[in-house]
Amino acid sequence: MNLAVYRVILRTQLSPARLLVLAGLSGVAILLAFTARAADDTVEVATRTIANFGINIFAAFIALSLGSAALGNLVEDRTLVYLWLRPVSRHSIATAAMAAVLTVVAPTLVVVMTVAAVITGVDELVAATAVATALAVFAYSGIFLALGLRFKRSLLIGLGYIAIWELLMSRLGDWFARLSIRSYPMSILSDATDVSMRLADRSTLTSYIVPLAVGVAGLLYTSWRLNRTEID
């Protein structure tokens, strides 16, 4: 990883607007946690809240917002040339971009969602939430980092992917569900609390391996794409 590239991309990630959105969503997560705690069936409501809000919405949309912008913004405003035109490996640029995204997204999401899990009072959910959120963030960040480099309207395409594939198509059957990122971290939550949720029926091992593999695949594709792409 190239530290200079990492620092530059990290600074672009920390825009006031993004920090505001992060803070807002964090506030919502905490509020929902208090609501779940007050529910009659706390375990079920808390598990579903963490899964539906934390994984399906919070993790996916924040990873999309920051992941697609990390290299995508540099392509869009034609400043990638100032990183590309140097004797540094393309893989180290990709890794630095991924690290910059994770530096912002991972602590925020993992910490906020873990605190939310603690607030619900469901002890078995706390560690599972931390792990599931971290894996979801890693997988989504890898996908959206690559998407940002590949497509000009990556934010729109990413929104389409989340809405159409992750939230709708995945409900059409097991085959589709297997290609949905969210089914894996949701399975970790389901395993921990024994709450049955649609899609959350992946085996324990694949629940860990697939999100990691997807994140790494996104990173490798980004490196390959950086090598192949023509810089404007």
């Binding site: 530059v8 600074r11 672009t12 400043t79 100032y82 004797p87």
Partner: peptide, 30 residues
């Protein structure tokens, strides 16, 4: 690429950096 220097035509720069940081970034990457 370590032996090539280029000033592209487009005006866009890494606008969140100062001039010194921008040039220093190039030096670091070289």
């Amino acid at each position: 690429l370590g032996r090539i220097g280029m000033a592209p035509q487009q005006e866009s720069l890494l606008d969140h950096l100062s001039g010194r940081e921008f040039v220093e970034l190039a030096a670091q990457l070289h």
